[in-house]
Design a protein around this nucleic acid. Structure first.
Lengths: 133, 133
DNA sequence: CTGGATCCAGCTCGATACTG
DNA sequence: CAGTATCGAGCTGGATCCAG
């Protein structure tokens, strides 16, 4: 709301148009539309999570990818990083308001994934079917 | 529906859990959570689009990436590919029901991007601020 | 524990050429 | 127009080491 006209009459690609027209929007979209970023956002959720917790909970993510994406998300103001000056160090990550907003859409995507899971599985099998004669 | 328990009591990462527990879900998520796939879904929208139209409308996408992602989306049953046996050939792409479902969530992400655009821009500037003394 | 830096194998992607 | 195949530069990402 606010800046966006949102005609809604017959323009069926308004959102995509905005991504096309605005290079900053496109840049943000590119940052955010990757599996590690979305998985991190989703995994933090409502909680306060520590680096190692995330590392353990996100299967397959490497130290480097986690660090890198965490920095990127922090830079974009999607997560907040709190350093506790203890020893050993303790660093907490939480979602910001913007982060929670994104999380809502990722929730939708997770939901979608599970709704169409078997449908997609079928489609794959059909597509991958041997070209037997 | 069906296979998903969905407690809803205090589990704040149920969606992420499902992505973690189910390797197929994770695989689908990984396929779909990339910028080109989402941009293609969003650009097709409600319309019937041709290869070259998509190529022209999605700024920065290469012939190869478009082909590759189109195949992947078709394999997952998210888009339908229709070949018209004319000359020159004409191939139409439309979203399937599953594709439209995904599109809805991408719409949400586009919307989010624009809602938090200036917020994110600010956060970036703060983060990138020169470490002047 | 957190995280920066480096090394390098492997994959990604763009360019190009070729088919129907 | 749509699509496949190939090649090579460059980026990605995992492993590892070091530091606070």
């Amino acid at each position: 709301m606010g800046t966006k006209p949102l005609s809604g009459t017959e323009n069926d690609t308004d959102d995509a148009d905005l991504l096309r027209a605005d290079s900053l929007a496109r840049e943000i979209f590119s940052d955010v539309a990757n599996k590690w970023a979305l998985l991190i956002i989703e995994t933090i959720g409502d909680r306060t999570r520590r680096f190692t917790e995330l590392r353990n909970d996100i299967e397959g993510i490497s130290h480097k990818m986690l660090t890198q994406n965490l920095r990127m998300l922090e830079r974009n103001g999607l997560i907040e990083r709190t350093v506790h000056p203890t020893v050993p160090p303790r660093v907490d990550y939480t979602l910001t308001e913007a982060g929670h907003g994104l999380r809502a859409t990722v929730d939708g995507m997770c939901d979608w994934t599970h709704r169409f899971l078997s449908h997609i599985d079928d489609a794959r099998r059909r597509f991958d079917a041997p070209v037997n004669g």
